[in-house]
Design a protein around this nucleic acid. Structure first.
Length: 257
DNA sequence: ATGGTCGGCCTCCGA
Protein backbone atom coordinates (compact mmCIF):
# COMPACT_ATOMS: atom_id res chain seq x y z
CA UNK A 1 0.00 0.00 0.00
CA UNK A 2 2.25 2.83 -1.17
CA UNK A 3 2.03 6.09 0.76
CA UNK A 4 2.76 9.15 -1.37
CA UNK A 5 3.35 12.54 0.29
CA UNK A 6 3.98 16.10 -0.81
CA UNK A 7 5.60 18.93 1.16
CA UNK A 8 6.73 22.43 0.24
CA UNK A 9 9.77 22.52 2.53
CA UNK A 10 10.76 26.19 1.93
CA UNK A 11 14.53 25.53 1.69
CA UNK A 12 15.76 21.95 2.01
CA UNK A 13 18.92 23.17 3.78
CA UNK A 14 16.99 25.04 6.46
CA UNK A 15 14.43 22.23 6.78
CA UNK A 16 16.56 19.07 6.63
CA UNK A 17 16.19 18.10 10.33
CA UNK A 18 12.41 18.58 10.14
CA UNK A 19 12.13 16.57 6.92
CA UNK A 20 14.27 13.68 8.17
CA UNK A 21 12.31 13.53 11.43
CA UNK A 22 9.03 13.45 9.53
CA UNK A 23 10.25 10.70 7.17
CA UNK A 24 11.24 8.66 10.21
CA UNK A 25 7.88 9.05 11.93
CA UNK A 26 5.55 8.86 8.90
CA UNK A 27 7.55 6.53 6.65
CA UNK A 28 6.06 7.55 3.29
CA UNK A 29 7.19 5.48 0.31
CA UNK A 30 7.43 8.59 -1.84
CA UNK A 31 7.93 12.24 -0.82
CA UNK A 32 7.48 15.00 -3.39
CA UNK A 33 9.25 18.18 -2.27
CA UNK A 34 9.05 21.78 -3.48
CA UNK A 35 10.89 25.07 -2.92
CA UNK A 36 14.29 23.50 -2.31
CA UNK A 37 15.96 26.89 -2.91
CA UNK A 38 19.22 25.27 -3.89
CA UNK A 39 21.12 23.80 -6.82
CA UNK A 40 21.35 20.04 -7.46
CA UNK A 41 24.92 19.77 -6.15
CA UNK A 42 23.94 21.18 -2.75
CA UNK A 43 20.93 18.90 -2.25
CA UNK A 44 21.59 16.61 0.78
CA UNK A 45 21.41 13.33 -1.18
CA UNK A 46 23.52 11.38 1.30
CA UNK A 47 21.19 12.14 4.19
CA UNK A 48 18.21 10.87 2.18
CA UNK A 49 20.13 7.76 1.13
CA UNK A 50 20.99 7.08 4.76
CA UNK A 51 17.27 7.30 5.54
CA UNK A 52 16.57 4.71 2.83
CA UNK A 53 15.46 6.90 -0.07
CA UNK A 54 16.52 7.28 -3.68
CA UNK A 55 16.37 10.90 -4.85
CA UNK A 56 15.92 12.86 -8.05
CA UNK A 57 16.38 16.63 -8.03
CA UNK A 58 15.82 19.63 -10.28
CA UNK A 59 17.50 22.56 -8.55
CA UNK A 60 17.90 26.28 -9.01
CA UNK A 61 19.88 28.88 -7.07
CA UNK A 62 17.81 30.79 -4.48
CA UNK A 63 14.38 30.08 -5.98
CA UNK A 64 12.10 27.14 -6.77
CA UNK A 65 13.58 23.65 -6.96
CA UNK A 66 11.72 20.31 -6.76
CA UNK A 67 12.70 16.78 -5.77
CA UNK A 68 11.35 13.27 -5.39
CA UNK A 69 12.49 10.88 -2.67
CA UNK A 70 11.39 7.26 -3.00
CA UNK A 71 11.93 3.89 -1.36
CA UNK A 72 12.36 2.53 -4.89
CA UNK A 73 14.50 3.52 -7.87
CA UNK A 74 13.36 6.51 -9.95
CA UNK A 75 13.18 5.91 -13.69
CA UNK A 76 12.31 7.78 -16.88
CA UNK A 77 12.68 11.24 -15.36
CA UNK A 78 11.17 14.31 -17.00
CA UNK A 79 12.94 17.43 -15.74
CA UNK A 80 11.06 20.75 -16.07
CA UNK A 81 7.56 21.05 -17.47
CA UNK A 82 7.44 20.09 -21.18
CA UNK A 83 6.06 22.45 -23.82
CA UNK A 84 8.44 25.39 -23.44
CA UNK A 85 11.98 24.89 -24.78
CA UNK A 86 13.34 27.91 -22.88
CA UNK A 87 11.92 26.87 -19.50
CA UNK A 88 14.46 28.05 -16.94
CA UNK A 89 12.47 27.62 -13.73
CA UNK A 90 12.89 24.42 -11.69
CA UNK A 91 9.23 23.75 -10.95
CA UNK A 92 8.51 20.26 -12.26
CA UNK A 93 9.97 16.78 -11.94
CA UNK A 94 8.28 13.59 -13.07
CA UNK A 95 9.35 9.97 -12.80
CA UNK A 96 8.29 6.36 -12.39
CA UNK A 97 8.75 4.64 -9.07
CA UNK A 98 7.11 1.72 -7.26
CA UNK A 99 4.78 1.18 -10.20
CA UNK A 100 3.49 4.75 -10.12
CA UNK A 101 4.04 7.76 -12.36
CA UNK A 102 4.55 10.71 -10.00
CA UNK A 103 5.30 14.41 -10.44
CA UNK A 104 6.52 17.01 -7.97
CA UNK A 105 4.98 20.34 -8.91
CA UNK A 106 5.73 23.87 -7.75
CA UNK A 107 3.19 25.97 -9.58
CA UNK A 108 3.95 29.71 -9.92
CA UNK A 109 2.44 31.95 -7.22
CA UNK A 110 1.33 34.57 -9.75
CA UNK A 111 1.10 37.62 -7.52
CA UNK A 112 0.59 40.44 -8.14
CA UNK A 113 -2.30 39.84 -10.53
CA UNK A 114 -1.43 42.97 -12.55
CA UNK A 115 1.95 41.62 -13.63
CA UNK A 116 3.55 39.25 -16.09
CA UNK A 117 3.90 36.79 -13.18
CA UNK A 118 0.17 36.20 -13.27
CA UNK A 119 0.15 35.66 -17.03
CA UNK A 120 3.04 33.24 -16.57
CA UNK A 121 1.07 31.34 -13.93
CA UNK A 122 -1.95 30.90 -16.18
CA UNK A 123 0.20 29.91 -19.16
CA UNK A 124 2.08 27.43 -16.95
CA UNK A 125 -1.21 25.92 -15.81
CA UNK A 126 -2.36 25.49 -19.40
CA UNK A 127 0.92 23.74 -20.15
CA UNK A 128 0.48 21.53 -17.07
CA UNK A 129 -2.96 20.60 -18.39
CA UNK A 130 -1.41 19.45 -21.66
CA UNK A 131 1.10 17.31 -19.79
CA UNK A 132 -1.65 15.92 -17.54
CA UNK A 133 -3.73 14.95 -20.60
CA UNK A 134 -0.74 13.14 -22.10
CA UNK A 135 -0.24 11.23 -18.86
CA UNK A 136 -3.92 10.23 -18.75
CA UNK A 137 -3.55 8.72 -22.20
CA UNK A 138 -1.05 6.27 -20.69
CA UNK A 139 -3.86 4.80 -18.56
CA UNK A 140 -1.52 4.28 -15.60
CA UNK A 141 -1.70 5.19 -11.93
CA UNK A 142 -0.48 8.82 -11.81
CA UNK A 143 -0.03 11.13 -8.81
CA UNK A 144 0.47 14.81 -9.62
CA UNK A 145 1.41 16.28 -6.25
CA UNK A 146 2.72 19.58 -5.07
CA UNK A 147 2.22 23.21 -4.19
CA UNK A 148 -0.37 24.29 -6.76
CA UNK A 149 -0.68 27.81 -5.34
CA UNK A 150 -4.42 27.54 -6.05
CA UNK A 151 -7.23 27.69 -3.48
CA UNK A 152 -9.83 25.52 -5.23
CA UNK A 153 -12.96 26.74 -3.44
CA UNK A 154 -14.23 29.03 -0.63
CA UNK A 155 -14.09 26.21 1.92
CA UNK A 156 -10.33 26.04 1.33
CA UNK A 157 -9.52 29.51 2.74
CA UNK A 158 -10.23 31.15 6.10
CA UNK A 159 -11.45 34.39 4.51
CA UNK A 160 -12.66 33.94 0.91
CA UNK A 161 -13.72 37.58 0.49
CA UNK A 162 -10.34 38.82 1.63
CA UNK A 163 -8.60 36.66 -0.97
CA UNK A 164 -10.91 37.44 -3.89
CA UNK A 165 -8.29 39.40 -5.85
CA UNK A 166 -5.28 37.26 -4.96
CA UNK A 167 -3.60 35.19 -7.68
CA UNK A 168 -4.19 32.07 -5.56
CA UNK A 169 -7.95 32.53 -5.67
CA UNK A 170 -8.96 34.52 -8.75
CA UNK A 171 -11.67 33.03 -10.90
CA UNK A 172 -9.13 32.43 -13.68
CA UNK A 173 -6.77 30.54 -11.36
CA UNK A 174 -9.57 28.37 -10.00
CA UNK A 175 -10.92 27.78 -13.49
CA UNK A 176 -7.49 26.68 -14.76
CA UNK A 177 -7.19 24.28 -11.82
CA UNK A 178 -10.66 22.91 -12.43
CA UNK A 179 -9.83 22.41 -16.11
CA UNK A 180 -7.08 20.01 -15.06
CA UNK A 181 -9.47 18.15 -12.75
CA UNK A 182 -12.03 17.97 -15.53
CA UNK A 183 -9.59 16.04 -17.69
CA UNK A 184 -10.21 13.18 -15.28
CA UNK A 185 -8.10 13.82 -12.17
CA UNK A 186 -9.34 13.46 -8.60
CA UNK A 187 -8.40 15.81 -5.74
CA UNK A 188 -7.47 13.04 -3.30
CA UNK A 189 -8.06 15.03 -0.13
CA UNK A 190 -11.42 16.49 -1.12
CA UNK A 191 -12.62 13.08 -2.35
CA UNK A 192 -12.40 11.74 1.21
CA UNK A 193 -12.92 14.85 3.36
CA UNK A 194 -15.95 17.08 2.68
CA UNK A 195 -15.43 19.33 5.71
CA UNK A 196 -14.27 22.94 5.23
CA UNK A 197 -11.24 24.48 6.91
CA UNK A 198 -8.60 21.84 6.18
CA UNK A 199 -5.45 23.76 5.31
CA UNK A 200 -1.89 22.98 4.17
CA UNK A 201 -0.35 26.46 4.45
CA UNK A 202 -0.26 29.20 7.07
CA UNK A 203 1.66 32.45 6.55
CA UNK A 204 4.63 33.06 8.83
CA UNK A 205 3.34 36.55 9.46
CA UNK A 206 1.40 37.54 12.53
CA UNK A 207 -0.99 35.06 14.10
CA UNK A 208 -1.86 33.09 10.94
CA UNK A 209 -0.87 29.74 12.46
CA UNK A 210 -2.24 30.30 15.95
CA UNK A 211 -5.49 31.73 14.56
CA UNK A 212 -5.72 28.92 11.98
CA UNK A 213 -5.82 31.43 9.13
CA UNK A 214 -4.75 28.92 6.50
CA UNK A 215 -5.12 27.95 2.88
CA UNK A 216 -5.47 24.56 1.18
CA UNK A 217 -3.08 24.96 -1.74
CA UNK A 218 -1.05 21.72 -1.69
CA UNK A 219 -2.83 18.99 -3.61
CA UNK A 220 -2.51 15.36 -4.69
CA UNK A 221 -4.25 14.83 -8.05
CA UNK A 222 -4.89 11.22 -9.03
CA UNK A 223 -5.51 9.64 -12.43
CA UNK A 224 -8.52 7.27 -12.51
CA UNK A 225 -6.21 4.27 -12.17
CA UNK A 226 -4.80 5.79 -8.97
CA UNK A 227 -8.10 7.18 -7.69
CA UNK A 228 -9.68 3.73 -7.87
CA UNK A 229 -7.03 2.62 -5.35
CA UNK A 230 -7.36 5.60 -2.97
CA UNK A 231 -7.60 4.29 0.60
CA UNK A 232 -6.66 7.33 2.69
CA UNK A 233 -5.55 10.96 2.40
CA UNK A 234 -4.55 13.19 5.30
CA UNK A 235 -3.00 16.57 5.99
CA UNK A 236 -0.46 16.27 8.81
CA UNK A 237 -0.56 19.56 10.71
CA UNK A 238 2.16 18.39 13.09
CA UNK A 239 5.21 19.71 11.25
CA UNK A 240 3.74 23.24 10.99
CA UNK A 241 3.80 23.50 14.78
CA UNK A 242 7.41 22.39 15.16
CA UNK A 243 10.35 24.76 15.71
CA UNK A 244 11.88 26.06 12.45
CA UNK A 245 8.77 24.96 10.53
CA UNK A 246 8.08 25.44 6.85
CA UNK A 247 5.02 27.59 6.19
CA UNK A 248 3.52 24.50 4.46
CA UNK A 249 2.71 21.17 6.09
CA UNK A 250 2.77 17.72 4.44
CA UNK A 251 -0.18 16.01 2.76
CA UNK A 252 -0.14 12.27 2.01
CA UNK A 253 -2.33 9.61 0.46
CA UNK A 254 -2.33 5.84 0.55
CA UNK A 255 -3.10 3.72 -2.53
CA UNK A 256 -4.23 0.14 -2.23
CA UNK A 257 -1.83 -2.33 -3.77
C1' DA B 1 -1.62 48.38 14.71
C1' DT B 2 -1.24 51.23 7.05
C1' DG B 3 2.27 46.37 10.21
C1' DG B 4 3.60 41.59 10.61
C1' DT B 5 7.88 36.68 9.16
C1' DC B 6 10.81 33.78 6.99
C1' DG B 7 15.00 32.15 3.68
C1' DG B 8 18.59 33.24 0.74
C1' DC B 9 21.42 36.58 -0.19
C1' DC B 10 25.38 41.52 -4.42
C1' DT B 11 21.00 44.83 2.22
C1' DC B 12 16.04 43.52 -0.91
C1' DC B 13 13.12 40.05 -3.35
C1' DG B 14 9.84 36.33 -3.35
C1' DA B 15 6.59 34.14 -0.73
Amino acid sequence: MPKVASWNVNSIKARLPNVLAWLQETAPDVLLMQELKTVEDSFPRLEFEAAGYHTAVVGQKTYNGVAIASRGPLDDLVERLPGEPDEAQARYLEGTTLGLRVASIYLPNGNPVASEKYAYKLAWMARLGERAAALLAGEQAVVLGGDYNVIPAPEDVYDPAGWADDALYTLDSRRAYRTILNLGFTDAFRALHPEPGAYTYWDYKGAAWSADHGLRIDHLLLSPQAADRLAACEIDRGPRGEPKASDHTPIWCELET
